[in-house]
Computed example of a mutant assay.
Amino acid sequence: MLAAQRAMGAYAKVGLETSTMGASPHQLIQMLFEGARSALAIARRGVERRDLAEKGRAITRAMTIVGEGLRGSLDLARGGEIAANLDALYAYMEAELIAANLHNDAHRIDNVDGLLASLQSAWSEIARPAAAPLATPATSAMPAVAGA
């Protein structure tokens, strides 16, 4: 049984590595949101089952994704007020997760998950216009706009 779990874990790791290799920066951030939210679901389950080890591992994973992945990807020098606000929000999430871990508090886990869900939804909306531009005769003759 343990060998099968290790094999499945190795398979999942290879799958993740393969999917990240071809991903755009936007898709990588989306994967970080998904990974953090998945870890929070496991942490919530750990709290409900009173499985402190599971909860601790999952919260640590979520904190790493939020702190090193999402927060670490911010360009504070060029990102202006939006980057500064996201930095503060990610710091708040990390503090909430520390408190959730210390107090076995599913409410704080849910709070962070809700914040991540909102950000993930907004992040998905950003990609939609760029992912499927509509080309009509009227718009196809227009010059391209940088950053659009």
Rank of each mutant, 00 (worst) to 15 (best):
A95G: 05
S118Y: 10
L74C: 08
S73L: 07
A39H: 02
A122M: 00
I126D: 02
I82G: 02
H107P: 04
S19H: 04
L102T: 07
H103E: 12
R71K: 14
P137L: 12
L76D: 13
Q5S: 15
S118H: 12
A95P: 01
S118A: 15
A10K: 12
I82A: 05
A117Y: 08
Q27F: 05
I98L: 01
E34F: 08
T18V: 15
E68M: 10
A43E: 06
S38E: 12
D75T: 03
L76M: 13
E68D: 04
M93A: 06
I29R: 01
I59D: 07
A106S: 05
R37K: 11
A146H: 08
G35Y: 05
R57Y: 13
N111Y: 12
L115Y: 15
I29P: 03
A83Y: 00
G46R: 06
G22F: 07
I126H: 02
A138P: 00
A84T: 06
S24L: 04
W123D: 13
A43Q: 06
E17Y: 14
A23F: 03
A148D: 10
A4C: 04
S124D: 10
L2Y: 14
L102M: 02
L119Q: 00
L40S: 11
A84L: 10
L86S: 03
P129I: 01
L28V: 00
A135Q: 00
A3V: 07
L115W: 13
S73G: 15
M142S: 09
L134P: 00
A4E: 15
T18I: 15
Q120P: 05
I109P: 07
Y90Q: 10
A146Q: 06
A3F: 12
R49V: 07
A100E: 02
P25D: 07
R50A: 13
E54V: 10
I109A: 08
T64A: 11
R6N: 15
A62C: 02
E54P: 09
F33W: 13
T136H: 11
R71D: 14
G35L: 07
G69R: 00
V47S: 03
A91F: 08
I29W: 00
E125N: 14
Y92A: 09
M63T: 08
R44G: 05
G15W: 13
A83K: 02
I109S: 04
G69E: 01
L40A: 12
T18P: 11
A83N: 04
E125Q: 03
T18Q: 14
G35S: 07
S24Y: 04
R61Y: 05
A144N: 12
A12G: 09
I42P: 08
S140E: 15
A39N: 10
A148C: 01
H103D: 13
R6V: 14
A84M: 14
A106R: 08
A84W: 04
I59A: 08
A77G: 12
H103W: 08
I126M: 01
T60K: 01
S140V: 11
R6G: 09
N85T: 05
G72P: 02
A130E: 10
A132I: 00
A135D: 04
I82R: 02
D113Q: 09
Q30T: 05
Y92C: 07
P25F: 07
V47M: 04
L32F: 05
S73Y: 01
A41R: 15
L2A: 06
